[in-house]
Structures are given as C-alpha cells and as structure tokens.
C-alpha cells in the first residue's frame, strides 16, 4: 500500500526540547539520548547519574514520582531501570531510562531525591534483582519471604511449565 518509510525520529516538542537542554546543561555527556514515546519524553542517562537526573527533573516541576520499573534484555546482557516522573500541573510525563549490565546490576538509589521511590525500588529489586545502592531497607515488599530468585527475569524457570508444557506454541518458553 505505502512505501517502506525510514524510521523517522519524532521531533521533540518545544517544551520537551527546553527540558532536554536543561538536563544536558546539568548532566553533560551523562545524557545519552532523548526521544519521545507517545508524545512523552524519554531520556536515557548513565546509571551513575540517575539520582542527579531525577533531581534536575524534580527542580523543573516533575514532583510526582509515579513508578519505577525494569526490563530484562537477556540477549544483550543488560537490565534496564525505568523511572517515571510526572508534572501534575501539565500533566507531563518523563521517563528516565538507564542500563546496567546483567552480571552486575547496580544503580544508585533515588530515595534521597524522592522518598516515595522507596517501595518502587524494593519491588524492582525483588522482581528483577537490580540492586539499588544506598537504599535504606532493600528487602522483599510484595512476594513471600521464602521466594527464591527474581521472577521477572526472562531466564527464571517456572516449574509448572516444565512439568506441563504450555498448550500451544504461543509464549513457548
């Protein structure tokens, strides 16, 4: 129907560009890239600068720490931490991404910047095994105390799937 178009990077809006300039002034080279996703700004920073980036955003009015999450990329041997902050006046949303190696997933905590990041980081730790260095009390939040492993990692073995394979080829694994 239509020609194959090149993957065009969507343009940042004017307010997002201003925000990126602000971040670049504060972080320098630690700001790796800035893109948009569904009209929300997504910035990637180095793991060491995660609290700093969040502090800059907080000073810019992004005072609500919405959630932290993680992504496991086993093929590329890395884990990703996602922090989602919102400016409630807008509302505007920014996602801060940082990548850590799978062999040593350590990233500085953001609890000094947002006190509310505490439980989100505990949840991300228990599901993905990402260690938040400097977190005041990094222990299990939702799962049972005797849970073993980090269940959201893609190589985590689900025992029922071994005993009875998934009926069908969708999601086989």
């Amino acid at each position: 129907m239509s020609e194959v178009t090149e993957d065009v990077q969507p343009q940042l809006s004017a307010s997002d560009s201003a925000l990126v300039d602000e971040l670049r002034a504060a972080l320098g080279d630690a700001l790796v890239e800035a893109t948009t996703n569904l009209s929300n700004l997504v910035v990637r920073v180095t793991p060491e600068q995660r609290p700093h980036a969040l502090a800059v955003l907080k000073a810019q009015g992004f005072t609500y720490y919405s959630f932290a999450g993680g992504v496991d990329w086993p093929d590329e041997e890395r884990l990703e931490v996602l922090d989602h902050v919102e400016d409630l006046r807008g509302p505007r949303q920014v996602t801060v991404r940082c990548e850590v190696p799978r062999s040593n997933p350590r990233v500085p905590t953001a609890t000094n910047v947002f006190r509310g990041a505490d439980w989100h980081e505990r949840e991300t730790w228990e599901l993905f095994g990402i260690v938040f260095v400097g977190h005041p009390k990094l222990r299990r939040l939702l799962l049972a105390d005797w849970q073993e492993g980090f269940p959201m990692r893609k190589d985590e073995v689900l025992r029922p799937r071994i005993e009875k394979p998934w009926p069908g080829d969708f999601f086989s694994g």
């Binding site: 939702l142 689900l158 029922p160 009875k164 998934w166």
Partner: peptide, 13 residues
C-alpha cells in the same frame, strides 16, 4: 488448581 495462574511465580497451585 491455580486456575489461570497455574504458571505464576507467586500463586499456590
């Protein structure tokens, strides 16, 4: 039996 959560990491089977 665990129902739709039969392969979940946190639900008793």
């Amino acid at each position: 039996s665990g129902g739709p959560y039969w392969d979940s990491y946190s639900v008793a089977k």
